[in-house]
Design a protein around this nucleic acid. Structure first.
Length: 297
DNA sequence: AGCCAGGACAAGT
DNA sequence: ACTTGTCATGGC
């Protein structure tokens, strides 16, 4: 058991869409696998409790949960803007997780033209089929080497569709050293982007997600359909320059906010795209052209 | 039932 | 440089 004093909201942190392998437990805790270790996490007052972690792993988890960063300062900066102030207030304890780079790369390759529940399922099958079995019944995320050693056809049980070839190419290039992810964490950003995009199936958005969530590059700002909509609605001129150094945090707060928080300021523009809620059917209602004679089931 | 999903690619203008 | 169709699968 490892214990930190930390201001972190687990529901927001694990549930905001940045990670795919954490599961919420009935009592409010979360369980998952990271760095090849099974972990159950829960809050107790001001404390963050990591069950299943050894004291010798303290530094590892401190980094994973980004506990060294002064989120108070980040939030103070963002509070100067009306929109980000609301987004930050919606998820007061959300933190970026510093995930493993290879896992982040695979996860966001699989995320393209896909929805979050199905992404989770594909990653679960990926780990069950090719990850190391752990003592508690879970599975580690498979290594690039393991995936480089199998044929693309063997990825069929994942049912990840056209993305199988992308995973295969990523595994090959990472395993061979052609794409060095530890290097991508240190290189100049534009070089790191170009390096990742050498992988077939990695474009600007997946590269940006890999750098942000997997390489600790907090200035990265992935633009997906939701962020595109949100930016068009709130920041048609682009992200204000003073937020760029923490663009990744701003991005994740905004992503979570516009997807999950109904707000009059963006409701009309964004509600039609939300999966949950009746706003969708109301917003996309077709002009009910009931043709005479046709018998609707 | 049918639309669309935390995009990228290839082939068109 | 920008636009468009296509990709495989399944949540909702």
């Amino acid at each position: 058991m490892v214990c930190f004093e930390a201001d972190i909201d687990l529901d927001a942190t694990f549930g905001c869409g940045q990670c795919f392998r954490w599961l919420r437990l009935a009592h409010g805790g979360w369980s998952g696998v990271a760095h090849g270790r099974e972990l159950t996490v829960r809050r107790d007052g001001p404390l963050l409790l990591l069950e299943g972690a050894g004291e010798d792993e303290r530094g590892l988890w401190q980094e994973y949960f980004d506990l060294g960063r002064d989120y108070g300062a980040v939030r103070a900066l963002l509070a100067g803007d009306t929109v980000f102030a609301k987004a930050a207030a919606f998820a007061p304890g959300m933190r970026l997780l510093r995930q493993e780079s290879w896992e982040a790369l695979c996860s966001f390759i699989l995320s393209q033209n896909n929805n979050i529940p199905r992404i989770r399922g594909i990653i679960e099958r990926l780990c069950e089929n090719f990850g190391e079995r752990l003592a508690g019944g879970g599975y580690a995320f498979p290594t690039a080497h393991r995936l480089a050693c199998i044929s693309e056809k063997e990825l069929a049980p994942l049912r990840c569709g056209f993305r199988a070839g992308y995973i295969a190419d990523a595994a090959r290039k990472v395993d061979s050293g052609e794409v060095d992810l530890s290097l991508a964490a240190r290189m100049p950003l534009d070089e790191a982007r170009a390096l990742l995009q050498k992988i077939h199936g990695v474009g600007p958005k997946v590269a940006e997600c890999t750098l942000l969530f997997g390489c600790g590059r907090v200035e990265c700002f992935p633009v997906d359909v939701w962020i595109r909509r949100a930016m068009a609605c709130y920041f048609p001129q682009g992200l204000p320059g003073r937020f760029e150094p923490v663009g990744g945090i701003a991005q994740q707060l905004l992503f979570h906010y516009v997807r999950c928080c109904p707000d009059a300021a963006h409701e009309e523009a964004l509600a039609p795209f939300r999966r949950t809620g009746k706003a969708r059917s109301a917003g996309l209602q077709k002009p009910t052209a009931a043709k005479a004679g046709s018998a609707p089931a």
